[in-house]
């Protein structure tokens, strides 16, 4: 190769890398690029088998029949309180939401729901946090869409916002309704 061209190779390499990083930053600003995000291994797979106590509590077999949004939350989690209004709006829109209280005492959960309102059609309790391990829950809040066959279709980490609902949840809800 021409020696002059060879000496320009580092410059070219840096240009390409720089363009790549710029694209990453732009997408990060739009919320489309998040290296921290860990994809759920459950997507496309049936919900792990479980039975949770609560009022009335539910088991994995109960999730079959219609699409259900399963929301993991806890009274001690501040973002969960932020998310409460979004969930209430979803409930009013007729989306069935089932809640699982993660590592939370029943009395605290009750107080939390009394304060922010309960969007949950059914409520399960995972006080020891064992079922959360099977689901691969990384923290609360975390939300899963389970289709009518009991297969996990979507997961969202962190509090959902009205934007998340319109941009991500609504299209996928329509798809599996």
């Amino acid at each position: 190769m021409n020696r002059r061209l060879l000496l320009l190779v580092p410059f070219g390499g840096v240009l390409v890398a720089g363009a790549g990083f710029l694209a990453m930053l732009e997408r990060a600003q739009e919320g489309k690029f998040d290296p921290r995000e860990v994809p759920s291994m459950l997507i496309g797979k049936p919900v792990p088998r479980f039975t949770l106590p609560g009022d009335p509590g539910f088991a994995s077999t109960d999730l079959v029949g219609r699409p259900v949004l399963v929301n993991w939350f806890a009274s001690w989690c501040v973002p969960c309180a932020e998310e409460a209004t979004v969930l209430m709006d979803l409930k009013r829109a007729g989306v069935p939401i089932w809640g699982i209280a993660y590592k939370d005492k029943p009395a605290d959960t009750a107080k939390f729901l009394a304060r922010y309102g309960s969007p949950y059609a059914r409520l399960g309790r995972d006080e020891p946090g064992r079922v959360a391990i099977d689901w691969g829950v990384t923290g609360v809040p975390e939300t899963y869409l389970i289709d009518a066959q009991g297969v996990v279709r979507w997961r969202f980490v962190g509090p959902m916002t009205p934007d998340t609902v319109s941009a991500e949840l609504q299209p996928i809800l329509r798809k599996y309704a």
Partner: peptide
């Protein structure tokens, strides 16, 4: 902060890209 990132990236582009361009032109 991604916005800050763009500033640093531009700065790095000038320092690194500029010096490597100079290298490509002047090293011969």
């Amino acid at each position: 902060d991604p916005a800050r990132g763009v500033f640093i990236l531009a700065l790095l582009g000038l320092v690194i890209g500029g010096s490597l361009l100079l290298f490509g032109l002047r090293a011969p």
